[in-house]
């Protein structure tokens, strides 16, 4: 097996399929409606994208370690509700309320992790239960009503999280930089560090990893905490941007996020994950949502397209996988 050429290496990468799909998608929408690439539409798409994207990034690491988290959508709704309830009641400053919301989310992630690793309950069941507990709590403490958020205006915390600014023709939100920073750091952790090696080994062959002294339990618990924290962070950003903390927001996000991650090439069964692929998967789904509305397809048809993309990409990944191993 001689060293492979650059082109062969590129073709063997799992990110190539999603990249081609994204380019095709953008090309088609642009050909049908040139407004698709207008600065305003690009800025709009980016703003929505990064909030789900943040959750997808941490979900990528969690799924690489062989677990997943269905409670992210409910935390997306719950964390801002908690933060604004504390603040509006005059109990704490906005900063303290923010810290409390994020810490509570991390503790919820810890509970998920402990149930999965110590009690050996599949993450599907644990996080499904947690989804109901967290969503139910958000509805209970608000009586189902949205919380006031307009007092965020002028708060430095709000500016840091979602403040917008003009870059040439684009009106961009700060959250885009949080997304870029998270993608860079998590991508670095997954591919370059010891923690990344342990994440992949924990998902690939936990028994072998354990036998080599890898802390599989600790690795997974930390990723559950990261996942919950990111979901809370994304929910808070979204609440400030849309000036609404709705206890129902984030419903169904867990499945959309998992779809983004697997479309990008991360294995649902664990062991293999790619942050670059997830970034592409995030854009594929968000561009699709934005594009079909723009070219006049009824928005209700969105799920048909998403389903077809998921099925098509899964078929492609499995075909590449088999072709890759055919020679051995």
């Amino acid at each position: 097996m001689p060293e492979r050429s650059l082109l062969e290496r590129l073709i063997a990468r799992p990110e190539l399929g999603p990249l081609v799909l994204l380019i095709l998608e953008i090309g088609v929408f642009w050909a049908i409606n040139p407004d698709f690439l207008s600065p305003q539409n690009i800025a709009n798409t980016l703003a929505f994208t990064v909030e789900l994207g943040l959750i997808a990034l941490s979900m990528t690491l969690l799924m690489t370690s062989g677990e997943f988290d269905l409670s992210v959508g409910s935390l997306f709704g719950f964390a801002p509700v908690l933060m604004w309830t504390l603040f509006n009641a005059g109990a704490t400053s906005l900063e303290i309320a923010f810290v409390i919301a994020v810490v509570v989310a991390a503790l919820i992630g810890l509970v998920n992790g402990l149930f999965v690793t110590r009690l050996k309950i599949p993450s599907f069941l644990v996080t499904l239960g947690m989804l109901l507990v967290v969503r139910g709590t958000a509805l209970f403490i608000t009586d189902g009503f949205p919380q006031r958020t307009w007092s965020a205006e002028g708060q430095w915390l709000a500016e840091t999280l979602v403040g917008d600014f003009q870059l040439g023709p684009f009106r961009l939100y700060m959250s885009l930089f949080w997304f870029a920073a998270a993608a860079l750091i998590l991508g670095y952790i997954l591919t370059q560090t010891r923690a990344g090696n342990w994440i992949q080994a924990s998902g690939g062959n936990p028994a072998a990893a354990l036998a080599r002294g890898v802390n599989v339990t600790g690795t997974k618990i930390r990723l559950f905490m990261l996942s919950a924290t990111m979901a809370a962070f994304a929910g808070i950003i979204s609440s400030i941007r849309t000036s609404a903390a709705n206890p129902n927001s984030g419903t169904g996000y867990e499945l959309e996020v998992i779809a983004m991650v697997v479309i990008g090439g991360t294995a649902l069964s664990g062991g293999r994950g790619t942050i670059i692929g997830t970034v592409l998967g995030v854009f594929i789904l968000r561009v699709m949502r934005n594009g079909i509305v723009l070219i006049g397809v009824p928005g209700l048809a969105y799920n048909i397209f998403i389903g077809v993309i998921i099925l098509g990409m899964m078929a492609l990944h499995s075909w590449l996988e088999r072709r890759h191993h055919a020679g051995t």
Binding site: I189, T193, Q200, A201, G204, R212, G213, V214, A267, G271
Partner: peptide, 27 residues
């Protein structure tokens, strides 16, 4: 062995050499 990981990563699994001035335990 972890079949998804490379030869080098399997050899050093659990005993990864860390770069001296590195960030977050870079291998």
């Amino acid at each position: 062995l972890v079949t998804q990981l490379s030869i080098a990563r399997n050899l050093f699994l659990g005993r990864e050499p860390i770069m001296a001035p590195g960030f977050l335990n870079r291998m």
